[in-house]
Amino acid sequence: MLELRVADVATPCAGVRSVTLVGDGPLPSYPPGAHVGLEWAPGRLNPYSLTPTPSPRGPTPRDLPPGLDPEEYHLSIALRPDGEGGSRRVHALAPGDRVRATPPRSSFPPVGTAAHHVLVAGGIGVTPVLAHAAWHAFWGNSFEVLLVQRPGVTPHAADLRALAGDRLARATDRTAVPALLDEALRGAPWNSHVYTCGPPGLIAAVAATARRAHWVADRVHAEPFVHAPATGTPFTAVLRRSGREVAVGAGESLLDALDRAGVAAPRLCRQGVCGECVTEVAAGRVEHRDTVLGDDERDGHMALCVSRAAVGETVELQL
């Protein structure tokens, strides 16, 4: 764990607190889209995306790639009054306070071989997207940004505009989003990838639009900031086609366990909203945690990314 000190706090817009953290020594570098797990109570960590270092010349210094040998970590965190307490803890921080955090973890990196990057941010989902945009701006990569926001309540909108210029499209009216997505994804040049950070509805909309435009799943990347919990009681999944048994641990999803076992399974959003990983269940009761299957579809199907076997059950999958 990193021992960090709060160097500065700011309120870029209502309900959002930006925190600058420094270490007692050099801080680990991080790739765009990385997050740190900030400890807000003993043993309780929340992941928060790292944003680029602001500078008078723009959101990132021009001499080093964003995230390389950083002197500070920057986080922007939306207050969730009904959450478990992580965001309330951050909003109560003051300069001089000490916090602990995991080293940066990369879970949402840009694809290095892509010819073009489509970045989609909803609300506080702007934070990793800002890091991506700073990276692409630094290296001169081809990219565009679609920012879905309520007027006046999205932090870093000005930073994003400074980085993206006329490559930034903004939607303050949800009804405008489908047309903007359609235009961006249907017209994206060969070898594009799309990255979305936002609420599940936005992630699902991007995935659906991409699918309609014949994008394959591996070109669609998402980082939800509202996670459906995918962990729980251990269970066993039996794969009917191969006869293999895959043990699913308490701290992993069924999809994670299948990946670990080298079993190819479809996926897209990894949060139970897009339906890409829905698989036929031959036997066993399921604890459904997705938001994509209707009641009449849940009998005999499950979303591998978030749903689990009911306690004490073994599920048999048509995989």
Binding site: H116, P189, W190, N191, S192, W215, R219
Partner: peptide, 10 residues
């Protein structure tokens, strides 16, 4: 040819 195509082509 590829620069003339959009993502989605096979």
């Amino acid at each position: 040819e590829l620069p003339r195509l959009t993502t989605g082509w096979r």
